[in-house]
Deep mutational scan, measured.
Amino acid sequence: DATRCSICQKTGEVLHEVSNGSVVHRLCSDSCFSKFRANK
């Protein structure tokens, strides 16, 4: 199964994995990581 970025939905390489309870968010770049943090 292809890994997909939680923010931009791009498949491919994942730079960050953030687990939040039972959910793991995968983020492909620092910019997506920043957006993820801002959205929480």
Rank of each mutant, 00 (worst) to 15 (best):
N39T: 14
K40D: 14
G12N: 03
S6L: 05
C32E: 06
V18F: 10
V18R: 04
D1C: 14
C28F: 00
H25N: 11
A2D: 15
V23S: 12
Q9R: 05
N20Q: 12
Q9Y: 12
R37D: 14
N39H: 07
T3E: 14
S19R: 10
Q9V: 01
D30L: 04
I7V: 11
L27V: 06
R26K: 12
N20F: 03
S34F: 08
S19Y: 04
D1K: 15
V18Q: 06
L15K: 14
S19A: 07
N20H: 11
E17M: 04
E17I: 03
F36M: 05
A38N: 03
H25A: 09
S19M: 09
L15C: 11
E17L: 01
G12S: 09
V23D: 14
C5M: 03
Q9S: 09
K40Q: 15
G12V: 09
N20R: 09
S29I: 00
A38H: 02
N39R: 14
R37V: 06
A38I: 07
S34T: 14
V23G: 12
A38F: 06
R26V: 04
V23N: 14
S22I: 08
S31V: 11
F36R: 06
S34K: 15
F36N: 01
C8R: 01
T3P: 02
R26L: 07
R4D: 12
V23L: 05
N20C: 03
D30H: 03
E13K: 11
S29P: 03
R37C: 10
A2C: 15
T11L: 09
H16A: 04
I7K: 03
A38D: 09
S34A: 15
R4S: 04
D30V: 04
S34Y: 00
E17R: 03
V18D: 07
V23H: 14
R4P: 04
C32V: 01
R4E: 07
S19N: 13
D1N: 14
L15R: 13
N39V: 13
K10H: 00
V18N: 04
T3M: 15
S31H: 08
T3N: 13
N39S: 12
C8G: 00
D30S: 04
S22F: 05
C32F: 00
T11C: 03
V24I: 10
S19T: 12
F33L: 15
E13V: 05
D30A: 04
H25E: 15
G12R: 08
S6E: 09
K10V: 01
H25Q: 11
R37E: 15
N39Q: 15
S19P: 13
S31G: 13
K40C: 15
S22Q: 12
Q9P: 02
V14G: 10
S34H: 06
K40M: 08
E17F: 02
F33Y: 10
L15Q: 14
N20S: 10
F36Q: 12
V23R: 12
L27W: 07
H25M: 09
S19G: 09
S22A: 09
I7C: 03
N20P: 02
R37M: 12
A38V: 06
N39E: 14
I7M: 07
G21Y: 04
S6A: 14
A38T: 08
V18E: 08
C5V: 00
F36I: 11
T11S: 05
R26Y: 04
N20Y: 09
G21E: 12
A2E: 12
V23A: 10
L15E: 06
R4Q: 03
K35C: 00
S19F: 09
F36C: 03
F36H: 11
D30E: 11
S31I: 13
F36P: 07
A38W: 04
G12A: 11
L27S: 03
E17K: 10
K40I: 12
H16W: 00
A38M: 11
S22E: 12
L15V: 11
G12F: 04
S31E: 14
C5K: 01
L15S: 13
Q9T: 07
I7P: 01
L27E: 04
A2N: 15
G21H: 06
K10C: 04
H25W: 06
S31Q: 13
K35M: 13
S6N: 07
A2L: 14
G12L: 06
K40T: 14
F33A: 14
K40L: 10
A2Q: 15
S22C: 02
T3H: 11
L27A: 04
Q9M: 09
S19C: 05
S29F: 00
A38L: 06
K10P: 00
E17W: 00
E13Q: 11
I7N: 15
S22M: 12
F36V: 10
D1E: 15
A2M: 15
V18H: 07
F33I: 10
C28A: 02
E13N: 07
C28I: 00
V24A: 11
S29R: 01
K10D: 03
N20I: 13
S19H: 06
G21A: 06
F33C: 09
R4W: 02
K35Y: 08
C32H: 02
A38C: 02
T11D: 09
S19V: 09
S6Y: 13
T3G: 14
R26S: 08
V24Y: 09
H16G: 05
S29V: 02
C32S: 02
H25S: 09
F33N: 12
V14T: 11
S31F: 08
H16R: 09
K35W: 01
L15D: 06
H16P: 02
F33W: 15
D30T: 07
L27C: 13
S6Q: 05
D1H: 15
C8T: 02
C32P: 01
G21C: 04
H25T: 11
E13T: 09
F36W: 15
R37F: 03
C32M: 02
K10A: 05
G21V: 02
T11A: 05
